[in-house]
Design a binder for these strands. Structure first.
Lengths: 348, 348
DNA sequence: TTTAGCACTCTCAATACGAGAGTGCTAAAA
DNA sequence: TTTTAGCACTCTCGTATTGAGAGTGCTAAA
């Protein structure tokens, strides 16, 4: 209830720090010995008793050391933690790697997943950058052989969708090109929701393609598409998951798509690009995350495409490192998005 | 040494079957009771003692039941197993789902991973279909805004590569289209290895794009690209992985790319499309797979693109189900590949 | 060759016990 | 009033012990 004294904050911070490193309950004596406190262990014990009453610490059993509660981690993240920025030499290396991967979105994603996982020593998740509302930009139809036609659909956000179509009959490339050109003129700048039914006078070929384009843009609007990830072995290596079903529960976040979509929508629904959200434990809402924490951010640019990224680790994770890593990578990806899709903001 | 008698084969088969279901060592009495053998448990014990000498069974400790060795599973898969085909109603449902996903390769992959994981109750892995040698088919350059240009590169295998380029100066669409057309004429049908250096007389823009195309096609040639997967929770749910580091070792197959590439290259190097390879235990060569088995197949069409797919589960897995599932899905994907890239075989 | 019978072996679960760690409390010191 | 030393107390964890039970291997008879 009462605000914590400075000394209590110090002790709480040290307990969190020690527990994060050791995964062991922390005792009063250990605290005094290792961190050179200028009070005795008895004094620490008194403070610890108080912190236990306040709900920040708990004892696994009568005479073990103390373990921080989820509440303590939330307090730590909110008020005690200081970021552990990546060394700038490392930042240079990383941004150089991103520069080399600049051409292909899939490569950014894999790289970002790998960097997040390695630096935060946790599992990482990233969704593809997507627009709120997909808008048509350009359509290209390319004959491959006979009835097989490759449809390449470009959205204003820069997303590209490719589909292989098998038509009922073969058409020459010129016919397909002119059809594509025709549709380009009709559809440019439109969202799926604004598209009418194909006009009566439109040819069979054109209206078939029209409907495919519309259907595909509608499909794009739902869900996050592919989710990239890395570093699950980091999580499985943590002692708290060496037995029991916790690890399995966490993997469900990856494999049961609705779970992840629900989670991101609820946690990030009002978050701006630039901030980092920390979810500690299931927060009573997500049982399968009961022993895990998530550090999440949104990246991209507000009026073009944006996506989510984050790391998942044990509650006992190094938040200082995780938050600054997530923040840094989110910034990098935001730069990548606005650079490579640079034109799109000009629509304003 | 001596070939097994029919009765020994029967008993070995039953032990494997029972152990797969129960995950418990199998005793002689249990065998007689549950499977209605018309011999006594003492007789079974004698046979079991012999099978133990031969190396097909082992006892976890002096007086537990018997557990099949890896050798036994290999024998089982080779000679005793009968496939457990999926019910045909299920096959219909599945092939219908594939039909609906026919337009986009990523969707096939996700669907196939999901079907494999669900039906074989194991983790699934699939690589994208790729050609041995990427051949240029078509290039398209699309202005997005100002200096930002989208490059769409189509290969004869049907693969499409998209890249966002930022040029040094802005060009009008017509200029880019004619450059693309020019390159299309020069490069059609060529593999990266056959491409010369860009001719001197070629313009700066054209040769810049030329080099990008070449570099990208070379990059494509190495590695499997993205690997789709599903069903790791199935594996983590197995009792043998509830503790220990086995689960972590298995996930490394996914997260350490060279491991997977090495594995697929060695196991599948001479395999034809149509066959199923079974890898039981690490086979002494892959330590991290020591407690796991893999059922692998190649799909695609020999002269167009092909890829690998398979499931990973405990050694104690239901091979009958896994083999027929992998085989069935491989067949489906092969059909998808040859249908959607149908034209390509015509090159012959 | 098969089978009944039986002694034997080894695991697993339950129990007991001591060492050790860390606490909470009390009373003295600052 | 706050801090500290001292100490009894509590509880876990590792080790040792024990008994029940499961399943075997062997022997001798069918």
């Amino acid at each position: 209830m009462n605000p914590l004294t400075e000394r209590q904050k110090l002790i709480l911070g040290l307990i969190v720090q020690d527990y994060v490193e050791s995964a062991q309950p922390v005792g009063s004596k250990r605290l005094v010995d290792h961190y050179g406190l200028d009070v005795s262990s008895a004094t620490v014990r008194n403070e610890m008793a108080e912190l236990t009453d306040t709900g920040f610490l708990r004892q696994p059993f009568t005479s073990a050391g103390r373990v921080p509660t989820e509440e303590a981690f939330r307090f730590f993240v909110g008020e005690l933690m200081h970021r552990q920025e990546l060394p700038s030499s490392l930042k240079h290396t990383i941004s150089h790697q991103f520069y080399q991967a600049r051409h292909e979105v899939g490569q950014w994603m894999r790289l970002a997943a790998s960097v997040l996982a390695t630096q935060a020593k946790a599992a990482s998740l990233i969704t593809l950058p997507q627009t709120q509302q997909a808008r048509f930009k350009h359509l290209e139809l390319i004959v491959t052989t006979g009835k097989h036609v490759l449809m390449v659909l470009v959205l204003e956000s820069g997303q590209v969708i490719q589909q292989m179509l098998v038509l009922k009959e073969a058409f020459p490339q010129e016919r397909l090109s002119s059809t594509a050109e025709h549709l380009n003129n009709i559809l440019r700048g439109q969202a799926a929701s604004e598209m009418p039914a194909p006009p009566q006078e439109m040819g069979t070929l054109a209206s078939e393609i029209f409907l495919l384009v519309k259907a595909e843009m509608e499909r794009l609007g739902s869900g996050f598409g592919e989710v990239f990830h890395d570093g699950w072995t980091n999580v499985l290596a943590e002692p708290e998951f060496s037995e029991g079903d916790a690890a399995q529960r966490a993997l469900r976040v990856l494999e049961e798509r609705p779970l992840l979509e629900d989670l991101l929508n609820q946690v990030m629904n009002d978050s701006q690009i630039g901030g980092v959200q920390v979810l500690i434990g299931g927060e009573g809402r997500w049982e399968h995350l009961n022993d895990f924490s998530l550090v999440l951010a949104r990246y991209g640019s507000a009026n073009a495409a944006s996506g989510y990224l984050g790391v998942l680790g044990p509650i006992r994770m190094s938040y200082g490192r995780a938050v600054s890593t997530v923040d840094y990578v989110a910034g990098l990806l935001s730069d990548m998005v606005s650079e490579s899709m640079g034109g799109t903001e000009a629509r304003e």
